[in-house]
Design a protein around this nucleic acid. Structure first.
Length: 283
DNA sequence: ATAGGCACCTGGTGGC
DNA sequence: TGCCACCAGGTGCCTA
């Protein structure tokens, strides 16, 4: 579900509520998500104060004063809802518990965070903060697409070695981290590149264009509060609205948004996932 | 080393 | 109304 813009939107929603607050009560309603929860997660969280809420790729990283960091991944269907915030920025009353509320935490400032994830492809781990970079889920990640480490030179040196469709290469979190199915489709449309084109058959100039469009589409989406498909919401319950700005994703059979084009958006399946593109504008 | 396919899980939708 | 097939924002792991 959530790609980088949605995760960043969630981070921005929960950071002001969590930072400076202490975990008072942690309720863990099942033993696992995608993997078992870390040993004694409840006990290790309770009493710890939040120093900062960061993001790396699609991971939310909650840094604690206990020298540990809580790592959270939302998988396909994970959500974090905030309620009961004393500052009045969020819903005052705690909502009644819902199905798939797997972890519920009450903070010292009265805020409650509820992690809900029907499909349970999400994950949590609790790791030593000074060992974060070596964590197996983190160490394999490529550069942050919005950071300085992501540039056309390095990006081209990776794409030029890959004999797979560019679609698959962009979904590879080791090449560039944070993109998912939606924003790959959107970035390729903006760049005029066919998702089926082999990565090593794309010129350096076009990779430079793609680098810029990856940045832009992610920035645009963050600005819009992410994309709300199904019932995805921001932490305060608001809907993001970038889904209204999709050029191709989910638009099979509809007209290409380039004014003079007139072609219809096509859907193909690549490695089991839908790719949407304009057969006329993307080559 | 790289590429491709499957598995994990639940819920919503549309067709018959 | 029921049943079934298919689809969904991710990614680790297995196989060639």
């Amino acid at each position: 579900m959530p790609e980088l813009p949605e995760v960043e939107t969630v981070r921005r929603g929960i950071a002001p509520v969590l930072e400076g607050a202490v975990f008072r009560n942690v309720k863990v309603n099942r033993p696992d998500l995608r993997w078992p929860f870390p040993e004694r997660m409840k006990e290790r969280l309770e009493g710890a104060k939040v120093l900062a809420v960061r993001r790396r790729s699609k991971y939310i990283l909650v840094e604690l004063d206990s020298h540990e960091t809580l790592l959270i991944h939302l998988g396909m269907s994970g959500r974090i809802l905030v309620s009961g915030d004393p500052m009045g920025r969020f819903v005052h009353d705690h909502p009644t518990a819902e199905k798939h509320d797997h972890v519920v935490v009450d903070m010292s400032n009265g805020a409650r965070l509820t992690y809900n994830d029907p499909r349970r492809f999400g994950a949590m781990d609790l790791i030593a903060t000074d060992g974060l970079a070596e964590h197996p889920l983190i160490s394999v990640l490529g550069p942050e697409p919005l950071g300085n480490e992501f540039n056309a030179n390095d990006f081209y040196s990776r794409t030029s070695l890959r004999n797979s469709p560019i679609k698959a290469v962009l979904l590879d979190q080791g090449v560039v981290s944070g993109l998912g199915n939606i924003y790959v489709c959107e970035a390729l449309f903006r760049s005029g590149i066919d998702p089926r084109r082999k990565a090593n058959r794309i010129s350096k100039q076009r990779i430079e264009t793609l680098t810029i469009h990856i940045r832009d589409v992610l920035s645009d989406a963050i600005e819009a509060g992410g994309s709300s498909l199904k019932d995805y919401r921001q932490a305060d319950g608001e809907l993001g609205y970038f889904q209204h700005n999709f050029d191709v994703y989910g638009r099979e059979g509809e007209l290409c948004k380039n004014a003079a084009c007139g072609a219809k958006i096509t859907r193909v399946v690549q490695s089991g996932r839908s790719s949407f593109y304009c057969p006329k504008c993307q080559r």
